[in-house]
Design a protein around this nucleic acid. Structure first.
Lengths: 222, 222
DNA sequence: GTGTGTGAATGGCTTCACAGCT
DNA sequence: AGCTGTGAAGCCATTCACACAC
């Protein structure tokens, strides 16, 4: 599913380069997927390819855009104007893909009223009013764990159904709200885990221990 | 697997609160997983729980840390001192979990030599020297798509096996290198997709169309 | 009774392999 | 010949359900 967005990006790049046709194999290479993966994914959207030839880049790009809901205009508010919030507000990658950042909010009086990029920081106390006025339909939470749930509840109560959270906590939301989470520290920890496994000399020993017991026994009970 | 890091975080919070025991049910709520999920995950590390009682928080926390490789010291270099790179460099969440940010590099002469947080920006031309000097064993790529692959290759050649990329491209790395990707624009697009699906009035109609054909037919061929 | 540990069943995603169209 | 479209098979993760330990 996330792959569709990668296909779309690759296709748009190809478009600007003037490429007109592409095979599943080539598209797979460009996006890091497998060719059967590409074909299966695209077949779910309907059969837009031509056997023996490939896919028409422009035609395909248009259909994926439609399937992804990029016809809709998305108005994004970022809550939290700390390091991350500011970086996101200035990130050009959003605007270029149909996501308008329409508001930036924070609780810090020092920040409220200041300009970040082309936005003025609003007071999070006026969250509801700001979301309504700006017609926000998507919110990005870039704030500390402690404040996240409360703000999240208010965002939901204000009628926003799509939330992307960078706060390192498990937020509780009703079933009709769509919540996605990005957690950078977790990403690093997963890397650390794999790095450790790969460096582990025990991996090439030849007894028949399953990975499970191996892991359990490497650190005997404290 | 990513859940282990969430368990660990929740457990550490509980530790500071003085909680000594926890059930799979409670831990599941705190992390957004299911209780059978928690039990299965933990059973892979060995059987550290007591039937009818639950898990010992401190004991469990220690074992998960070990399993995740947090005994190792991780030295992280961030390549790219743009908005995102600077935000990451100042992000406190890394240091607190055993990841030391030891270098920040960029290609922009305007930035090289300036101070961000407690780091001085190095010239990416001296990448190899910096990585060696700082004993970096993990790299975060926070740079434009166009430059990502080249820098990535150099990082790999310099002997770093763990890379976290924020660049919106599919990077090619050898099999012995661990690469993870975080892509914020993709996250927003996935949200947009789901929001669109939920708003779709066609969802509650009663003909027997499978989702597949429904999607294919919503936008008839151009 | 309470809550873990774990086989069994389920469901989804990925890969394989090849028929069929150009 | 080349490449898509798609059933079939395989694989992994999640959920279910319950025996068992406390």
């Amino acid at each position: 599913m996330a792959r569709l967005t990668l296909y779309l990006r690759a296709l748009n790049t190809l478009l600007t380069e003037g490429t007109e046709r592409i095979s599943s194999e080539t598209l797979a290479e460009a996006t890091g997927a497998s060719s059967s993966n590409v074909r299966k994914d695209l077949s779910y959207l309907g059969s837009y390819g031509t056997r023996g030839v490939g896919y028409d880049v422009q035609y395909l790009s248009r259909h994926i855009s439609a399937a992804l809901g990029l016809t809709h205009e998305w108005r994004v508010a970022i809550v939290g104007a700390g390091n991350l919030g500011r970086a996101l507000a200035r990130y050009a990658g959003f605007e270029s893909r149909g996501f308008d950042v329409v508001a930036l909010l924070d609780a810090d009086q020092m920040l409220i009223g200041s300009e970040i990029g082309w936005l003025r920081v609003s007071d999070v106390q006026q969250l509801e009013a700001v979301l309504t006025r700006t017609k926000t339909n998507m919110v990005v939470l870039a704030l500390p764990a402690a404040a996240a749930q409360e703000v999240c509840d208010r965002v939901v109560a204000a009628g926003v159904h799509s939330i992307l959270s960078f706060a390192p906590v498990a937020l509780q939301v009703p079933a009709n709200v769509n919540l996605r989470k990005v957690d950078m520290a977790t990403e690093l920890q997963i890397l650390a885990y794999h790095a450790q496994r790969m460096a582990e000399p025990g991996l090439d020993r030849e007894d028949g221990l399953a990975p499970v017991s191996e892991l359990a026994e490497r650190r005997p009970g404290a």
